[in-house]
Amino acid sequence: MREQILAILEKNSRIDLKELAVLLGVEELDIVNEMAEMEKEGIICGYHTLIDWEKTSIDKVTALIEVRVTPQRGQGFDNIAERIYKYPEVTAVYLISGAYDLLVTLDGKNLRDISRFVSDKLSTMDYVLSTATHFILKKYKDHGTILTKKYEDEREKVSP
């Protein structure tokens, strides 16, 4: 049941729990308990809203930054990752396999905001060897949702 609850919530965190129970053919109370349990276990970490900021008048720039670092003895990458993720403008930090170590995503008002963060804060940190910043120009799809096109039903309206 957990997997099914999560699959639905991941797409629609605002779903009515009564309705969720109907869809899965279980009791509403079981859903409520299961969700509470998963919140406690840290499986469900939040209920967010997917926003296409492009369509608002609010200025927003998102950057992906590749960071190469020297791992620390006894700490690995955790220490440096923590120092980075504590900045509120950092929206995600991932440890990555391959040519670099950490992938940092960052929101800012404009390019200057981001470059200031990278040059002042990030690249000057101890153990950071290098950074490469990529600005996102257009979001086609985000969190499994296509942002550039609306679904249209092109089927014949009646068919056998």
Binding site: D153, R155, E156, K157, V158, S159, P160
Partner: peptide
Amino acid sequence: PSGIRKFFDIVSEMKDAISLGVGEPD
């Protein structure tokens, strides 16, 4: 003639109708 055909003709004239009439996946 297929009974569905007749109904199809009525439905296709109503542009704003919503349908629960299809026999194929969405």
